[in-house]
Nucleic acid binder design. Structure first.
Lengths: 233, 233
DNA sequence: TCAGCATTGTTCGATACCGTACAGGAATGG
DNA sequence: CCATTCCTGTACGGTATCGAACAATGCTGA
């Protein structure tokens, strides 16, 4: 049916009303879901794969500010209105598809369905914690720690220990240069935590990887688990 | 009356209903408004001065994740409930006082007053943009650029080009060590952008400081100005 | 099969910042 | 007025990461 965690939490009745208005869009790599500066037309509920919300600086440098997978939605700020904020969202790790919903439909549904409003509210809460933690993380933790964190987060979201991932993309995620990523990945390989070959990354020793990752991984994950636990709704 | 921008935006009737339930708390330096891990009891609307929302890591290292002054409120996440998130809020730059409001009163008022809900919603929007921008900023910009940005932001919030500020605090704000701050401040002094002496910082050449600051200063400021413009309510 | 492209590996010097330690000056409180 | 505490300046070697090339490898499509 759907692999998206927010949609899964919806009561069947609410979900049934929503489904006819949603379309499937393929989660192909590098697909741009929201372009910076353009109004949001649709919001997306990924069933798998991973999307990045990025900020683009004036000099063209781009860096990830938030990661979104099946636990959330792309275009959260549509709750505030159609205007975009200074950021761009795109698919980083490909998946099968995401549910796309027109912004107006989404906003209308938020009014009608208290369940959806509550779920989106909880996701917003988790999203905020994630971004706050990332802010601290980026100023205190090394590129290696953050790399390990990102790989673990991605594994959780794609639901598999192996996924396509170029070092170039990883460099954008972490806000470092690509050669730095090469060094880090080599280091992680030598210690047996990951295996890497030409665009495919496999996590070989997750507990080991978690040891070299910073605490931000566990913190954010615990928060999402708490907020999006089925029973809590 | 009040110097807090959110309260000022309230219609007189709504503000009048709120005032009797608020108390003044002095904005003395290092005063802790929300302790990490403890439930939020009150939210605060600063009239002046600057507060920091910080994240504390397991090893004790602390770093600022958001700055709050008279343009906002401390304890925004009370909109989600009483539970704290993994962060601590305290006064960084002293001011005269802030309005304190009991969380339950705040939440009740959010239900009753659509004006307050709308204003808080707008502040949330700005807050999110600020934190997202900071995430990117922390991973791309140098300590010097971020320092200049922080000083300009602080000037805007205290409404004066001179304010008390130790290098130790500045180091926590920026997530760097104190000796690094010493070097940066010396550099900014030599170029005539700031004057500094024992706990007092004065901005001598704001346009100059803005030139060495990263673009994040202007971006976030423009966003808050847009969102909290009186006419837009 | 081969050309072309995307991706990865590697080098180099340069620089920003760390970690730690210590010393001196200014404010503060008894 | 003295002791203490806070704040600032400074030093040092060490490390992470930059910036900018260039080489090497594997994929892909004509």
């Amino acid at each position: 049916m759907t692999g998206n965690r927010l949609l899964t939490l919806l009561p069947p009745h609410d979900l049934a009303r929503l489904m006819p208005r949603m379309t499937r869009v393929p989660m192909t790599r590098k697909r741009v879901l929201h372009k910076g500066g353009e109004p949001i037309r649709e919001v997306y509920f990924p069933n798998d794969g991973v999307c990045s919300m990025t900020t683009v600086m004036r000099d063209g440098r781009m860096v990830e500010v938030a990661t979104i997978g099946s636990e959330g939605m792309v275009g959260l700020n549509a709750i505030f209105g159609r205007e975009t904020i200074n950021s761009e969202s795109l698919v980083q790790v490909p998946g099968t598809d995401a549910w796309a919903l027109d912004v107006d439909d989404f906003r209308a549904e938020l009014e009608q369905s208290t369940a959806l409003a509550m779920i989106v509210n909880r996701y917003l809460q988790g999203f905020l914690v994630m971004v706050l933690q990332s802010t601290a993380c980026n100023s205190l933790h090394s590129a290696e720690e953050r790399c390990a964190r990102w790989l673990l987060m991605t594994r959780d979201r794609v639901g598999a220990p192996e996924f396509p991932m170029t070092q170039e993309l990883l460099a954008v995620m972490l806000g470092v240069r690509r050669p730095t990523v090469t060094l880090i990945v080599q280091k992680l390989s030598q210690r047996g935590f990951v295996r890497y070959s030409r665009g495919r990354l496999a996590i070989a020793d997750a507990p080991g990887l978690e040891r070299v990752s910073c605490e931000c991984y566990a913190t954010v994950r615990a928060e999402f688990d708490r907020l999006l636990a089925p029973l809590a709704i």
